[in-house]
């Protein structure tokens, strides 16, 4: 008989160590009040309430479905609700092979999203064309839209996708509220011909 090797040395549940709490932003507190910068509060709020727009075109999309399902559960990170309307969403998750014919569609979806918007490129295909180094496939979505975080892998495991989301959260939290009107950002948008 196959020996049972799993879960015989059960770890005691330790809630104080395994539950992650959001850190307080730096500020002054006293009895009954807490004073901090508005941008910290905005960053904290945005970070923990991302609405992702999944743009899943192939195999990496399957991995994303696992990420959303009960086992990995992206909702733990504040992304409970997926939006399927670009107007409502602030994180475009591109997962899968984007063919050259699909590129204008992807760009239009990006344009339809309201600022502030972030882009997560999941998998080798979305990031670089992946194994499809061929005439019909876009060699990386950063040829048409700016990307904030790349997740490598073919496909990346759900942990990888979650790690990408956490990196995005990090960017969101630490981003200056006025970054979008900065010259650097404007220049980046100019490069992609986006007003």
């Amino acid at each position: 008989m196959r020996p049972v090797r799993f879960n015989i040395n059960k770890k005691p549940v330790n809630l104080t160590d395994s539950v992650m709490m959001a850190d307080m932003p730096p500020g002054h507190s006293g009895e009954g009040f807490f004073a901090t910068q508005l941008s910290h509060v905005v960053g904290l709020a945005r970070k923990n309430s991302i609405w992702p727009l999944p743009f899943a075109t192939s195999c990496c999309g399957i991995e994303f479905m696992a990420t959303m399902a009960s086992h990995y559960d992206l909702a733990r990170f504040g992304s409970e609700r997926l939006g399927f309307s670009p107007r409502q969403c602030d994180l475009l998750m591109v997962m899968g092979t984007i063919s050259k014919k699909m590129a204008p569609v992807l760009k239009q979806v990006y344009l339809q999203m309201a600022e502030p918007r972030w882009v997560l490129s999941v998998g080798a295909c979305a990031s670089s064309g992946g194994i499809f180094d061929t005439y019909s496939v876009l060699q990386g979505i950063d040829q048409v839209i700016p990307v904030d975080v790349y997740v490598p892998g073919c496909p990346p495991r759900p942990e990888g996708i979650i790690d990408g989301i956490l990196k995005i959260q990090n960017i969101i939290q630490n981003e200056d509220v006025r970054r979008r009107s900065s010259p650097v950002y404007q220049k980046l948008m100019q490069e992609y011909n986006i007003q």
Binding site: K100, K101, G129, D133, T134, Y135, Q139
Partner: peptide, 26 residues
């Protein structure tokens, strides 16, 4: 019908290598 309309060549002819010729990073 399947390729982008701006394509100027016929990709399955053998004089065209399979790889995307627009890439410079490889």
């Amino acid at each position: 019908i399947l390729n982008v309309e701006e394509m100027t060549y016929y990709p399955m002819r053998k004089e065209y290598p399979l790889e995307d010729q627009t890439r410079k990073d490889k």
